[in-house]
Computed example of a mutant assay.
Amino acid sequence: MTNRVLILGGRGRIGSSVAQDLATHTQAEITITGRYPVAEGNEDAKWLSSKNNWTLGTGVQFLVLDLVEVDKLRQAIANSDLVIHCAGPFHYRDTQVLEICIELGVNYLDVSDHRSYTSKALSYNEQAAAANVTAIINTGIFPGISNSMVRQCVEQFDQAEKIHLSYLVSGSGGAGVTVMRTTFLGLQYPFEAWIDGNWQLVKPYSEREDISFASPYGNTGVYWFDMPETFTMPHSFPSVKTVITKFGSVPDFYNHLTWIAAHIFPKWLMQRRSMIEFLSYVSHFMTDVTNAYTGIGVAVRAEVTGQKDGKTAVYCANLVYENTALASGCGTGSIAQLLLEGKLKKPGVYPVEEALPTDLFVETMNSRGIKINSNWVKS
């Protein structure tokens, strides 16, 4: 029988990238959704039909669906073998779709990159396990592929002690306005980070640190940014006492503009939706200009420090990919492929690093031409 996959928010940059990955690597029947029909000439239509993107093909159907239409949503989920939630922004996301999937016994993936949704989703672990539903969250590039890179590093040690994750995106990363919103929403409040075995408040976009990324990026600045990994990895890897997640942009002047938004703009102004919308659209317009010079790639560097053979050692994994949005599609699509093929089954709700074994991660990345270079830095 043909597997049926429902991609909520599948018309957006990330969702359509997930659909493309599935269309390339599986025989699944794919349905992508959006709140409105794709009108000729609008941004989504241009993205979906762009000559710079792969063709989704006739195996992909489009369904007009607003998530507030619960009966229509329930019917669409009931007709699916797997639901992939790509609709954002994730700061305001509830667990309605996950709850329906658990109720109907349908497996679930989610690209959300926000701690609040991660926390809410994980609270349904027991219900999902009882329903024999595998639900995996944070499945894109970061979080997602980055989580599995950390797991691969942690497995090299007798005891891992510190995780340092650094992310770098060129221009828009090939993503849309929703991702811009996510960035600015992440600047609104301090967040808790796991440092030296304690939860400590950290200011967003603070403590710039120059990180040596793989070619062609080299030495580039990154800043503290609230990511679900900060929240999930202390649980996934109990011996770890520090988890650092830092993010930066190329060109570097975007970092300085973002720092100003985080530290100079009045907090009351940054907490207004109208301001977030203004900054998101202005930023998206600016990156449309600079993308031609910087590209839209992504770099991830995972560095783990721990004990190996009685000595302190450091192990690093590096990834570079030319299109951030497509990398996110590969991260989610690869896990979807494993679920559809029956190679991955873990009833409950889990972040990627707990659900995906390293051997399967390496296998799916290799099949997509994503090369992860790893090595001991010192011992």
Rank of each mutant, 00 (worst) to 15 (best):
H284L: 12
S239V: 07
I244F: 01
V282R: 12
T232V: 07
I260F: 14
L269F: 11
C316T: 12
V300D: 07
S249K: 15
T245G: 00
D252A: 11
E322A: 08
K267E: 12
M233S: 08
E229D: 06
G218S: 04
T312D: 12
W259S: 13
Y315A: 11
D309Q: 15
G248P: 06
T232Y: 04
M270W: 01
A317R: 03
P234G: 09
P238I: 09
G297D: 11
V240M: 03
Q271L: 08
P266E: 04
H256A: 10
V289F: 14
G310W: 10
P266D: 06
F285E: 14
L257R: 09
I296Q: 12
T242L: 02
S283W: 02
A302D: 02
D288A: 15
F231Y: 11
Q307N: 15
K311T: 14
T232M: 06
F265G: 14
T324H: 05
M227E: 00
H284N: 13
A262G: 07
T242E: 00
M227N: 04
F225K: 00
T220M: 12
S236M: 09
G306H: 03
Y281L: 12
C316Q: 13
V240P: 00
G310I: 09
Y293S: 15
E303D: 09
R301D: 11
Y293L: 15
P251R: 02
E322N: 11
V289K: 15
V314I: 10
T220A: 10
S236F: 05
G221S: 15
V240Y: 01
V282H: 13
Y315K: 09
Y315W: 13
K311P: 15
F253S: 13
N323K: 00
M227K: 03
T220I: 14
N291C: 01
W259Y: 12
F225T: 00
R273I: 10
G297S: 12
D309M: 11
A325N: 04
K246Q: 09
V304T: 03
C316R: 11
V289S: 12
A327Y: 02
H263P: 02
G295Y: 08
A325H: 05
V314N: 08
S249E: 13
P238G: 11
Y315N: 11
Y321P: 07
N318C: 03
T245W: 02
H235I: 08
N323W: 01
N323D: 09
T232L: 08
N323T: 02
S236P: 07
V250A: 07
M286E: 15
K308D: 12
Y315S: 10
G297L: 10
A292Y: 14
E322W: 09
V314L: 07
V222Q: 00
V243E: 02
